[in-house]
Design a protein around this nucleic acid. Structure first.
Lengths: 340, 340
DNA sequence: GTACCTTGAGCGAACGTTCGTTCAGCGGAA
DNA sequence: TTCCGCTGAACGAACGTTCGCTCAAGGTAC
């Protein structure tokens, strides 16, 4: 299999020019080379199957044209949607993406970042809630490499991009209230996440704004998974049997909520209405079709890349988080189609 | 922000040794350095925040410790499960992963591979069905870099790892037959995919083995998405209204099938039983809980990494595909829990 | 005929490492 | 005293590029 890359020196030798000249025509910018010398070099390069060695290029240019993506264990569709968007946006701009998926606990965060740093990525995008608690990661990001995060990073100084999570809570809750519900529960992600707390605040504020008192029995903490959400839902319906609506913190959990509600013999949406967050591709195909607050993950990914490239270029970047609007998507699970 | 990496030369200068000596203690192997010189160098390195530059290292070592992963647009949970497994397995072995997500049509396959090659990845793992049709990609993989694929690559010579897809078709169909079904439809992925054809062959062979004649009206082609599957299901049930069971080619589509069946007023599993493939995390939480043939995607990812590292090391590798067994997982949608 | 400009190409240095070889100094055996 | 071997460290070369400077040849203007 003896595969070997041919270097620019071999190309140059075969073409009868210095390797620096070959460099100019093959990879370089302003060419200063006659048309037929150039053509000859190109021809030789092609026939030899020359592929530039970006490793060597990176060494002298001191940039790798690579960005690092640190993502949580992307069983979560939302994260993978985001990751794909990031990679494609980056590639469109000539950047490659080096990815690290954190273990569930996120205990390897610093390892991943070190790996990225040692590979000299030009910048890092963090899409892992675990970094919220990891000050070692924060420190590394702050001191070694431009970074953009989907989540707040301890100590700040890392630009954040995302949506207003309070809005998702507000929108979902308001909509449920507009359907006449008064006993509105919520199945949330882990309390220690900022996203979760923001959504919870939005939910509670909206309740109050409509004269309803938040009740902590109505709040059930889960873990972003369908299974966890199903358990939380059972608990919630036991504690408050007359719950008539549930606000779920993501679509994956909504699957579990739907199933748990059905298992108690209640029907969605007539007995219990359900509103979710995210709007993943499968949401509209669940039974009943899931009403949800759309979070623009793909756009967020593209914005994150743009923002990061600005940081890399040294353009000053706003200290304020870049906020992308969320949007209510009404389908069946909230009761809209039933005319409720 | 003037971030600057400190090089080994600066560390060496501060420690009063040659940079090659510093190299030995910081990154090198057999040390031949006195204990306190070593300690001094380490201390300086730490205080200066030295991070080895693997770019330079790669240049001289002629390996990057990086593998490329080319994946289809991983909206598909199955692919992202696989990708995560690959990355984590690779990292455990000291490799980083450079990822490229193909556009839906896969028209950028060769671009992605070229990007990987120019970055001198040590090997490539392909998890994109589109490569089955891309002989340019195949050619690049064959001539430039060790590779392992989840899908057959035109022209062969690239080791394949995966499951026996005929088995998934057989297992699902047999199980449905064992429940007494005689009119068994199938909602498949795109016909031009080998996976799909293998599963279809397994399905048809099993039908025949039980004295049932395959009927092409019972085969509805879809596109791996819930929406496409829903449409295909409607078509199928229109063409053959007395269909009593459906074999779906993945869990994502099963969501659409479940919803489409329900919309015709039929119930799952009593009117129409459903068997799927994959066993994604959400499958058991659908309503009804999805019976499915588990495809060990995560294990496949780890095996792919192992196999690739063998190729990289030059260990001869079997020409036969590496087959991982699939497994029947019975839940509610096939009728098992109803005693059918 | 001289001076100058332009074009095309060569050349040296640098990027931050690794790796193998060389070398100075020292202790001990003959 | 001489020679040897060992230890600790220095040193040169190489990896494959980019970048900027130098330089020769030829053309043009005076």
């Amino acid at each position: 299999m003896a595969r070997r890359y041919v270097s620019i020196k071999e190309v140059a030798a075969r073409a009868g020019v210095s390797f620096q000249t070959a460099s100019k025509v093959l990879n370089g910018g302003n060419v200063r080379v006659s048309a037929d010398t150039a053509a000859r070099i190109m021809a030789v390069a092609k026939s030899l199957g020359y592929r530039p060695n970006t490793i060597a290029r990176s060494l002298v240019r001191r940039t790798t044209g690579t960005i690092g993506l640190i993502a949580s264990d992307a069983t979560d569709v939302a994260i993978s949607l985001f990751s794909v968007a990031v990679e494609q946006a980056a590639r469109r701009r000539g950047y490659a993406v080096l990815v690290g998926h954190l273990a569930t606990g996120g205990e390897d965060g610093a390892d991943v970042v070190r790996m990225l740093i040692e590979r000299r990525v030009d910048g890092v995008i963090a899409a892992a809630p675990q970094v919220e608690e990891d000050s070692e990661v924060a420190e590394l990001l702050r001191t070694y490499v431009p970074a953009v995060s989907l989540h707040h990073v301890p100590g700040g100084q890392v630009p954040v991009v995302g949506s207003n999570q309070g809005d998702t809570g507000r929108l979902a809750t308001e909509h449920l209230i507009s359907h006449g519900h008064r006993r509105i529960g919520t199945v949330s992600g882990p309390f220690r996440r900022r996203v979760v707390r923001s959504r919870l605040r939005g939910y509670e504020a909206t309740l109050r704004a409509h004269g309803l008192e938040p009740d902590e029995d109505l709040v059930a903490e889960a873990d972003w998974t369908p299974g966890g959400a199903a358990a939380a839902t059972r608990l919630l319906l036991e504690r408050v049997p007359d719950t008539t609506a549930i606000f779920v913190h993501n679509d994956a959990m909504a699957i579990g909520v739907l199933s748990a509600v059905a298992k108690t013999g209640r029907r969605v949406p007539s007995d219990v209405a359900v509103m979710s967050c995210d709007d993943m591709p499968f949401a509209e195909h669940l039974t009943p079709a899931l009403s949800t607050v759309r979070v623009p993950l793909a756009t967020t990914g593209e914005r994150a890349v743009e923002l990061l490239l600005q940081c890399i270029a040294g353009t000053p970047v706003s200290a304020e988080p870049l906020i992308l609007p969320v949007e209510l998507v009404n389908r069946d699970s909230c009761g809209c189609s039933a005319g409720g």
